[in-house]
Design a protein around this nucleic acid. Sequence first.
DNA 1: CAATTATTCGTACATCATACGAACAAGCAA
DNA 2: TTGCTTGTTCGTATGATGTACGAATAATTG
Lengths: 249, 249
Amino acid sequence: MPRTKIPDLIWLRPQPNDRRPRFSREQITAAALKVAATEGFHAVTMKRIAQELDCSTMALYYYVRTKADIVALMHDAILAELLLPQLPANWRQAVCAIARRTRDVLLCHPWSIASFHDAQFGPNAMRHVEQSLAALDPLKLRRKDKLTLWAIVDAYVFGSAVRTAASLARMAASKHNPALLADAKAFTRQQLATGQFPRLASFEPAGPLQDQFAPTRKAAQHRTAALAAQFEKGLHAILDGLVVSMHLR
Amino acid sequence: MPRTKIPDLIWLRPQPNDRRPRFSREQITAAALKVAATEGFHAVTMKRIAQELDCSTMALYYYVRTKADIVALMHDAILAELLLPQLPANWRQAVCAIARRTRDVLLCHPWSIASFHDAQFGPNAMRHVEQSLAALDPLKLRRKDKLTLWAIVDAYVFGSAVRTAASLARMAASKHNPALLADAKAFTRQQLATGQFPRLASFEPAGPLQDQFAPTRKAAQHRTAALAAQFEKGLHAILDGLVVSMHLR
DNA sequence: CAATTATTCGTACATCATACGAACAAGCAA
DNA sequence: TTGCTTGTTCGTATGATGTACGAATAATTG
């Protein structure tokens, strides 16, 4: 009869290291990340990870309780990338630095965005929040308000990343699947022809709809840059607004 | 030999209505939404939808090419809920109204947030964007800037909803699975004990970490209200900031 | 060397989306 | 009526997936 229940949370379970573990969690995580990076998140299966590590599928279950554990480890691994080696002293610069880094990392791992819904709160998530709060150290604010400030900026950064990632994914998809691009254009044209969308129609051609599917390499780069500029613009607007409403300086 | 290729996009394919179709797309969508609402998105399987409609699994494939089509229809259906019957004349009030409605609807359908990554751009998505642009009609801005303004607000609204939904989901989960709550607390305690997180630790007890898992009904309501207030605060901060940076009034 | 037990892995099963083609039924033509 | 065409339904089969179970293997210990 087990005296202590084995916890569900992977963070609470020690790695097996008593004798001769063939793999570490880091290795398994790295393998999974590699598959996700090269073949997409949908290709991350227990079988595929095992293949990457040259072991049987079931061997993984000695190190991990479920596949969700592996996904949690993957998320935690990319959250580690969010951490800045050091923070600018100026709070606003620090917040911007963290925000930019967050965006960059999320866009580097688009799969993560799609699977963040059930992400567990791991060690690196905590480090990230801690660092974000550290950025606000110079501010004379109640702790609670610092948390609010962070949450608001985080919501924007995350939402931005989600939308941008979706946009980039559509561009990539239309590159690999021209039929889809043609269909999308046909649909857009058909809808605009109904006259229900005067404002959207006023953008054509090269409006927000057609633009999502960047036809040329050049157009794609241009759109990527525009999205980055938009992100900056919004970030500064939010911070400006918060400076006023929270009486900061 | 077919003269015209059947398009992949469901929006481009007419419903079968020539003879005696047993179902409409609306019915199928409604059935899927019902399952999602009552049993969660994971329960939305072709089999389960068919069961709801009292037909065989495969009958659905006459109306729909893939399950992704059904998900697209589901998304489009909830996007319809975003549309306001009428907009306030004041642009700022209009934007706020749309933002609030968007948040409300997304939080009513948490599953949608988790599956938005590959959502297709359907008719109601277009209507929503069109209405959002209509809200900005009173503004003297270049069309392109209106789009930017909308995108920034949208990013915040969406990101907020994602984070809030995750928070609410954690609360719900901890209600149904007390073991998970205990594990999470244990993990948090253990991490804080390392001393690596002075700022997070300064919040305990009842900090951002413990708070995510609302123990009581009262605490949950309180947290829900706090999240709503936070949303409003951020929304106004963004708009204030944009008013300045885009020289609006 | 024998016993223990940490680690690996083969097999089996349930669940899912969906391809395929047969079965069925409604309308039309003779 | 009878038979043909074609729109609609559904049964069966297949391949992918996560993972439970327990046997097989091998390292360590006594």
